[in-house]
Amino acid sequence: MATIKRYPWISHFLGSPTGYVVHLQKGTVRHQGVGQAFWFRPASSVLSEVPVDDQELPILFHAITNDHQDVSVQANVTYRFNDPVSVASRLDFALQPSGTATMAGREQVATIIGQLCQSHAIDQIATTTLAQALQRGVSELRNLLTGALQTDSRLISTGIEILGVQVLAVRPESDVERALQTPVREQLQADADKAVYERRAVAVERERTISENEMASKIELAARREHLVAQEGANARRQAEEVAAAGLIQATAEAERQGISATAEAHQLKLVGEAAAAREAATMAVYKDMDQATLLALAFREAAASLPNINNLTITPDLLSGVLAGLMPNTPADQAGLPTLGK
């Protein structure tokens, strides 16, 4: 940005590195160039400053397609002033007394370039449908506008050089754009739903596999439990059979032992009986030759051994005489010296 210092009847100009200044005094160029510094009289001087750096111009306009659809075109044009003297002579880039440039020159350039872009773009879009404009309109308009602006005679004669044109977007109206986006959104939603369903199917398949594995494990455990129960039953049956066999052997041995014991006891009883019989026989043989009185006395002796205790015994004369008579049958009682009972 240039600076102007004002003094009485004279001023001093100090230019900028990106501004091309043209100093006219009474219609004659006195100073021109970048970064100039000079004194001038404000009453007889006219100063113009043209920017020599690259300029960016955003452009937005509407066009109608072949199928009567409105589309908006957003573009950006990069340009510069390659002939500042011609630009200063044809466009208004005059400096104000404070040193700031007016915006009239930039507005004129924006109008010229914008109208050129819009006219060429409208002609091109009018020959295409909405689908074609949206599909290849960006590249086609970029090539078309670049070639048309770079070869435009008015821009060349004015000293404006087009460096490049970028078409950023070709978009339909919002309602149409949403309608065009609906099939894609539906397709994307369908793909998302398909992915969800596939994920669920995979999850269900995995759950089924897990359930089958769990069921197989339960079946295997049940089979093993059944085998264990059968084995335990077989072991218990074998143990019972072993216990029964052992009991049978023990009972058989006990029966044989008791049989042997009974046989021995019977044999012993037989021997004892035979001995007792022999003794009785011998006794009876001894008793055979004894008289009646002796046998009676022995019988009383044997009987006395088994009789209970007798505290009082009453002997009558008849009983005593009968016993004594039995003991001495051949001897009268008076001869034997016994008293006669009853006399």
Rank of each mutant, 00 (worst) to 15 (best):
Q231L: 08
V184D: 10
L91V: 05
E177K: 07
Q166G: 08
I122C: 14
E161I: 06
V109T: 10
E274L: 09
E49C: 03
M328P: 01
A110Y: 02
A251H: 04
T182V: 06
R171Q: 14
Y7F: 14
L130R: 01
L307M: 14
V272L: 14
A304W: 04
Y287P: 11
C117L: 03
G15R: 00
Q96E: 11
C117A: 11
H120V: 07
A246N: 13
G342V: 05
G247W: 13
R178N: 07
T151M: 04
I64N: 06
G326P: 02
S48E: 01
G233T: 13
A246V: 06
M290Q: 09
I249C: 10
H23P: 05
M328D: 04
G273W: 02
Q55N: 02
T182N: 09
V204G: 06
A299S: 12
R30I: 10
S119G: 09
R178Y: 06
H267E: 13
R41M: 12
R200P: 01
L130T: 02
D193M: 11
V22G: 02
L149E: 01
T314F: 13
H227C: 07
R238H: 11
G137Q: 01
E140K: 08
R80F: 10
P317S: 11
R171H: 14
V109L: 07
Q292D: 13
Q335D: 14
N235D: 12
L271I: 07
R257E: 06
N309P: 15
D123S: 11
R237L: 15
S153G: 08
V73S: 00
I310G: 09
L341I: 06
H23R: 03
E207T: 04
V87E: 03
V138D: 07
E256R: 05
G114V: 02
Q32D: 05
A195D: 05
F61N: 02
T128Y: 14
S261M: 14
A148T: 01
A222N: 07
